[in-house]
Design a protein around this nucleic acid. Structure first.
Length: 217
DNA sequence: CACCAGGCAAGTA
DNA sequence: TACTTGCATGGT
């Protein structure tokens, strides 16, 4: 393939060619995305999926039912996802924010008609930049780029960003180098998670099988 | 057995 | 400001 006009688009096309379309977020509704975004904090999706299943089977994975649950009730359903007491509180905090700032209207939050969705999400105790951006991109369809440990690891290991780069600088970099496109941001983050999970594990510094091998040459 | 997984906040100096 | 620690289940 011909070299693209910038390295960030080149990486994207290499990953897309290698892995194909990822069909993200793995959830059936915006509300499911919101819950999953909190549950997957520092946790494998496999465990999150079990917690999601518990909620789904109990018919609780919708805003109107979920918002009636106490912290202890939430915790009992999400145990497989780990940190269950902590995450139950975080979900409760998030639901309370929607109740207070968006009048309990989930659709209003999703459409972000108040225009300050990210700041409102970050004001919730337990919602940091990655969780906020995941919700904005995958539930609200807003054009933001999600940075996670995989993104940092993949790009620093291939010497495409400095090892010390922080969340906001890295996000600024992607947003400035890529066209503003929700579908592109969606697919790109999913592809990064995919390549990292397979070829860029924490304990395996190098991998000659990685489709990004030599991308920086 | 040790280590890791799609973070975040709170405590310490 | 710059580290360190707690949170917890389940897979490799």
């Amino acid at each position: 393939m011909m070299t693209q006009n910038n390295i960030y688009l080149e990486v994207y096309h290499k990953l897309l060619t290698h892995f194909g379309h990822q069909e993200w977020w793995p959830g059936e509704s915006p509300f499911e995305v919101i819950v999953g975004a909190v549950l997957t904090q520092n946790t494998s999706w496999c465990n999150v999926s079990k917690a999601i299943c518990n909620l789904k089977e109990a018919g609780l994975l919708n805003y109107d039912s979920f918002k009636m649950l106490s912290v202890d009730e939430i915790a009992s359903y999400i145990r497989p996802s780990g940190y269950y007491n902590l995450k139950a509180k975080r979900l409760r905090n998030l639901l309370d924010m929607i109740e207070q700032l968006y009048f309990g209207d989930l659709d209003l939050f999703l459409s972000d008609s108040l225009g300050s969705g990210r700041n409102n999400l970050l004001s919730v105790k337990g919602v940091g930049p990655e969780t906020a951006d995941s919700i904005l991109l995958y539930a609200c369809q807003q054009p933001t780029f999600v940075i996670d440990t995989y993104t940092h690891r993949v790009f620093s290991r291939h010497q495409l960003v400095d090892e010390e780069t922080d969340y906001d600088s890295m996000q600024d970099l992607f947003l400035s180098k890529l066209p503003e496109d929700v579908e592109l941001f969606n697919e790109y983050h999913a592809l990064i998670v995919r390549v990292a999970a397979k070829y860029c594990k924490k304990s395996k510094p190098l991998c000659s099988e990685c489709p990004l091998q030599g991308v920086n040459d």
